[in-house]
């Protein structure tokens, strides 16, 4: 009887310890917020090609097709957003609004980049929902969401996130 009671106590302590460790382990960083940098860009074609200095990190991408059909890129705004899992963040843009939702952060060991799954919604300037999408990208990789505007212009929302 006493031995059985001791074994029961030990098993209970084991379960509690494992549960506590599982809940408090630093590896469980899926709940940690991630930082996202969002840049709003307007693309157009002009006689004086230019790329704003703030857009240097994106310059090589903007010079590749299909963005190369424009030659002028102007930064309309920049946002630093901290995204928490399953909590939507709304960004007010020059041309409408964007809503970001961090759906999942998956660490994949030391040889693969952390995977970030996002929900993205974009409304135009009139409040009409233009796009609703779910995307998974590597941490640090750029994601560009854009739409064509009247007058042969483009509206780009470029973002990248890191844990």
């Amino acid at each position: 009887m006493k031995t059985r009671s001791l074994l029961t106590t030990s098993a209970l302590a084991l379960c509690v310890t494992i549960g506590v460790l599982a809940l408090t382990a630093p590896a469980a960083s899926a709940d940690a917020p991630i930082a996202c940098a969002v840049v709003e860009i307007e693309a157009s074609t002009s006689d004086a090609p230019s790329i704003a200095a703030e857009l240097r990190p994106l310059e090589k991408k903007l010079k590749k097709p299909p963005f190369s059909s424009w030659n002028t890129f102007k930064q309309l705004g920049a946002h630093e957003v901290s995204l928490e899992p399953m909590k939507a963040s709304t960004l007010t843009l020059t041309h409408g609004k964007a809503q970001l939702l961090l759906r999942e952060v998956t660490a994949r060991g030391q040889k693969k980049k952390t995977r970030i799954s996002l929900g993205i919604s974009v409304d135009d300037g009139e409040g009409k929902r233009v796009l609703d999408s779910k995307v998974a990208v590597d941490a640090g990789d750029y994601l560009v969401v854009g739409r064509s505007l009247k007058g042969n212009r483009g509206h780009l929302i470029a973002m990248h996130c890191k844990p």
């Binding site: 090589k60 991408k61 299909p66 009409k128 999408s133 990789d141 994601l143 969401v145 064509s148």
Partner: peptide
């Protein structure tokens, strides 16, 4: 991808190093 009142296009732009890609969703 759900697009309202338009057409959606998805493509990627390969970085120069060939390692990572930039996803582009265009409406």
């Amino acid at each position: 991808l759900e697009v309202n009142g338009g057409t959606g296009t998805v493509f990627t732009i390969q970085d120069d190093d060939g390692g990572s890609e930039t996803a582009v969703i265009w409406v």
